[in-house]
Design a protein around this nucleic acid. Structure first.
Lengths: 190, 190
DNA sequence: CACTAGACGCAACAGCTTTGCTTTAAGGTG
DNA sequence: CACCTTAAAGCAAAGCTGTTGCGTCTAGTG
């Protein structure tokens, strides 16, 4: 890849990057995603279109970048004192966020303009990190707990699959069930 | 939506649809996906570009249609006489097909030009149907078996999640483990 | 302080996409 | 079977997007 993060961190390039990202977010809110075009974004950002084409390649890759940024969790998961509560809470928030129309749009964007699957990997890493934190807390408390991969396979993956491939029918109860099943088994296996 | 399947089934429309789909497949093999353009496809299909734009909207939606067609299973899953063998076999074939570079490309295309998530739903339905057949056979044999949703959550979803979000590291052994865990539990729960 | 290299601006061009209008053909009706 | 209605395809022109070569500028370097 070697395009996006290798930007000459402090200076003109950084300003351009920030201006373009900001322009995308503004215009997305103003005119809607389908009406976005590279020249439009460029004009808003005070940049020439060719700059965007050279740095990002096309609109999809740019949107992919912005989407990943938006999918980054802003804070570590809340601490409710118990693994089950932590995980239930996190899973339900995650589902709510990701299953909402804007959430879906971001996921799709992140996946789409992403030839190397780098941005998608980033999204997955965000979720994994949040889960790691939750499980680390459980470890400190002396609770038994599953490993990160198991939680991803049993909780995150099913939710994502449904979000992407089966629009509709996504309830908090579904997340609840997934977490319960995962934890029951992890306890049983000890 | 009301664009694709509502075509006036028999006649010119159908011929055009077939010609365009065929043109996409041919050109995809000849010049590669990134070089595909609407005018190019139109020329090969013996159609004017505006026809494609009016019927499909843009190249992505057209590719999405073609991709879904390619992801449709050609035959019912093989019968190996035992649920575990049937499911193991199917899961490994599925993973191999979907995780391959062309498989990934089709999945991405199918998801991409798909505003309503209609095509994605179709993909999911294909997999569900194959699983349903496998489980129905198990039922006939008197074996205990999980339900379709469970298999999707425990086997299909984790594979798809990894394919989409974590490029690399997809082995047949992974599919094997997923199936084993799913079946063990379903047996234990009886 | 001069130097090098990467990034942006500018401008022109090629090609895609859109759109109004016309023509064709499918399916229904008397 | 001929006619009528209507959806879809052809055509052509206009607008806009995406591409590329070249000159300029800024940021890091010796």
């Amino acid at each position: 890849m070697g395009r996006k993060p290798s930007v000459r961190p402090g200076g003109r390039s950084a300003r351009v990057q920030a201006a373009v990202h900001a322009a995308v977010r503004e215009l997305e809110a103003e005119v809607g995603r389908p009406a976005l075009t590279v020249p439009l974004v460029a004009a808003r950002a005070g940049v020439t279109p060719s700059t965007i084409y050279r740095r990002w390649g096309d609109l999809q890759e740019l949107l992919s970048d912005v989407a990943v940024e938006r999918l980054r969790p802003e804070a570590p998961p809340e601490d409710h004192g118990r693994l089950s509560a932590d995980l239930q809470n996190w899973a339900q928030q995650f589902l709510e966020e990701m299953a909402s129309p804007p959430g879906r749009a971001y996921i799709r964007d992140a996946l789409l303009g992403d030839p190397d699957g780098d941005n998608a990997g980033q999204c997955s890493a965000y979720a994994a990190e949040q889960i790691r934190i939750i499980l680390a807390r459980a470890a400190e408390r002396g609770e038994s707990f599953p490993d990160v991969e198991t939680v991803i396979d049993r909780v995150v993956a099913p939710m994502m699959y449904r979000i992407l491939f089966r629009p509709g029918n996504l309830t908090a109860a579904y997340a609840h069930t997934l977490v319960c099943e995962t934890l029951d088994e992890s306890v049983a296996s000890r």
